[in-house]
Amino acid sequence: MAGLLSNLRNTMIVSFLLALVIVVGYLMHHEASPDAIFWQAVFRWLHTLFGIMWIGLLYYFNFVQIRKMPEIPAELKPAVSKYIAPEALFWFRWAALLTWVAGVILAYTRGYLVEAITLGATEGFQVPQHTFIGLGMWLATVMFFNVWHFIWPAQKIALGIKEGTPEQKAAAARKAMLFSRINTLLSVPMLVTMTMTQTIFG
């Protein structure tokens, strides 16, 4: 068991195999063959899984790394900037993409993608569920856009992955921090819409 748990790849393979066994169990006890409801359940699971990784890393950056970096002695900072941050940013940006894609697919399979994108305007704003979930989707889309078009490009300069002068690196680090803080600000209301809409409206 220690050999399994000491290797992250093997741990995750076993975790996904166990998850797939459970997914198959749901399929066997579902009244119909894989239908829209079943696939909605699958994509809701994936959307939640990727979302936890995305927001978890966002909170790690903002609650831990950004706050504590000024306190780290200069000779130790490369351990974070050269090893930890690039790896965390890899999982961060791809989790953001997969969360967004799974969310769009989920909205499509549930039949309200257009209504949500328009915040319910196509229905004369008569279906509050679509307005609320659409608001959450737009907040998440802004956050996703920030990750790929502002945070990651700036971090590449700040971390030395892409060349830049010391001044450019400092400006890029500040830019990445500010857009990361914007995402942190948007994350809490976004999560309200994602969780409460399903509970209140079903």
Rank of each mutant, 00 (worst) to 15 (best):
T48S: 14
L98V: 14
A172T: 08
L98F: 14
N146R: 13
L46K: 03
L46I: 10
N62H: 09
E87K: 07
V147P: 12
K162L: 11
M53R: 01
L76P: 01
V104I: 15
M143N: 14
F144L: 15
L139H: 08
E167F: 06
Q168C: 03
W138M: 01
W100C: 05
A172Y: 11
E75W: 05
L89Q: 08
G56L: 04
R44E: 02
L159R: 04
I161E: 13
G164L: 09
I55Q: 04
R93Y: 03
V101F: 08
T165F: 07
T131I: 10
V64P: 02
V101N: 04
I52P: 01
A173F: 11
P128R: 03
W94I: 12
P153K: 11
G124E: 11
F132L: 14
H47E: 03
K82Y: 07
I55S: 06
V42T: 04
F50K: 04
G56D: 04
I66K: 04
G160K: 07
E115D: 13
A74F: 10
M69C: 01
R93K: 15
K162G: 02
N62T: 14
G164I: 13
M137R: 05
F132H: 06
F144I: 10
A176T: 13
A172H: 12
L159G: 01
I151N: 06
R110Y: 03
A121V: 03
I133H: 05
F92K: 00
F63P: 00
L159P: 00
P70C: 05
A85V: 07
T131L: 09
T165N: 06
F63G: 12
V80M: 13
I105T: 11
R110T: 02
P153Q: 07
W54A: 14
M143Q: 14
K68G: 00
F92I: 00
P128Q: 05
K162T: 13
N146S: 14
R110N: 10
F145E: 08
R93G: 05
R174W: 08
K68L: 13
G103A: 04
H130G: 01
N62I: 04
A41C: 02
L119R: 01
W54F: 15
E115C: 01
I72P: 05
S81T: 12
G160W: 05
A171D: 12
W152P: 00
W94L: 11
P70E: 04
H130Y: 13
I161A: 10
G56W: 00
M177A: 15
W94D: 00
I66G: 02
F144V: 12
G164S: 07
I117G: 03
L76V: 07
A116C: 02
G164W: 09
A158W: 08
W91F: 14
G103I: 00
G51V: 11
A140P: 05
F90E: 13
K175I: 10
F144W: 15
H149V: 15
K156V: 02
A102G: 01
